[in-house]
Lab assay of single mutants.
Amino acid sequence: EINVTSHGEEQAKHWIELAKRMNLDVEVEIHGDKIIITIK
């Protein structure tokens, strides 16, 4: 399980695309200006 804290939408999209390509599950939480991505 990987937790990524992203401070930008572009960076977040990059991680989500990467996870989808690798067929991994992704959870995205938004806390103000921080985007927390959990890849399982």
Rank of each mutant, 00 (worst) to 15 (best):
E1M: 13
E1V: 13
E1G: 10
E1I: 12
E1D: 07
E1P: 09
E1C: 15
E1W: 10
E1F: 07
E1L: 10
I2V: 11
I2E: 08
I2W: 04
I2R: 05
I2N: 08
I2G: 09
I2P: 04
N3G: 07
N3F: 09
N3D: 07
N3P: 09
V4K: 08
V4I: 09
V4E: 04
V4G: 07
V4W: 04
V4F: 05
T5N: 09
T5P: 06
T5I: 14
T5R: 06
S6A: 14
S6P: 07
S6I: 15
H7R: 10
H7P: 06
H7Q: 10
H7F: 11
H7M: 11
G8R: 05
G8H: 13
G8P: 08
E9R: 04
E9G: 05
E9L: 14
E10V: 07
E10P: 04
E10G: 06
E10D: 12
Q11G: 10
Q11E: 11
Q11T: 11
Q11I: 14
Q11V: 08
Q11M: 13
A12M: 14
A12P: 07
A12N: 14
A12T: 12
A12L: 15
A12V: 13
K13D: 12
K13L: 05
K13P: 09
K13F: 12
H14S: 08
H14N: 05
H14I: 15
W15K: 07
W15Y: 07
W15M: 11
W15F: 12
W15V: 13
W15A: 05
I16D: 14
I16L: 12
I16G: 06
I16V: 05
I16T: 04
I16R: 04
I16Q: 10
E17Y: 03
E17W: 09
E17M: 02
E17R: 02
E17K: 05
E17F: 05
E17Q: 02
E17G: 03
L18K: 02
L18G: 03
L18T: 02
A19K: 02
A19E: 14
A19P: 11
A19F: 15
K20Q: 10
K20E: 10
K20W: 14
K20D: 09
R21G: 12
R21M: 14
R21Y: 13
R21P: 14
R21F: 13
R21N: 08
R21H: 14
R21A: 14
R21S: 13
M22T: 03
M22W: 13
M22I: 14
M22A: 03
N23V: 15
N23W: 15
N23G: 15
N23M: 13
L24N: 02
L24S: 02
L24A: 03
L24W: 11
D25M: 13
D25F: 12
D25K: 11
V26Y: 09
V26C: 05
V26Q: 00
V26P: 00
V26N: 00
E27M: 13
E27N: 06
E27Y: 10
E27S: 13
V28Y: 03
V28G: 00
E29A: 05
E29F: 10
I30E: 02
I30G: 02
I30Q: 02
I30D: 01
I30C: 15
I30M: 04
I30T: 02
H31K: 07
H31C: 15
H31R: 12
H31F: 10
H31G: 06
G32L: 12
G32Q: 08
G32I: 09
G32A: 08
G32C: 15
G32V: 06
D33Y: 02
D33L: 06
D33R: 05
D33M: 09
K34P: 01
K34I: 13
K34M: 12
I35H: 01
I35G: 00
I35F: 02
I36F: 02
I36P: 00
I36T: 03
I36S: 03
I36V: 07
I36K: 04
I37M: 02
I37N: 00
I37D: 00
T38E: 02
T38D: 01
T38H: 08
T38Y: 03
T38L: 04
I39Q: 00
I39V: 05
I39D: 00
K40F: 05
K40A: 04
K40N: 04
K40R: 09
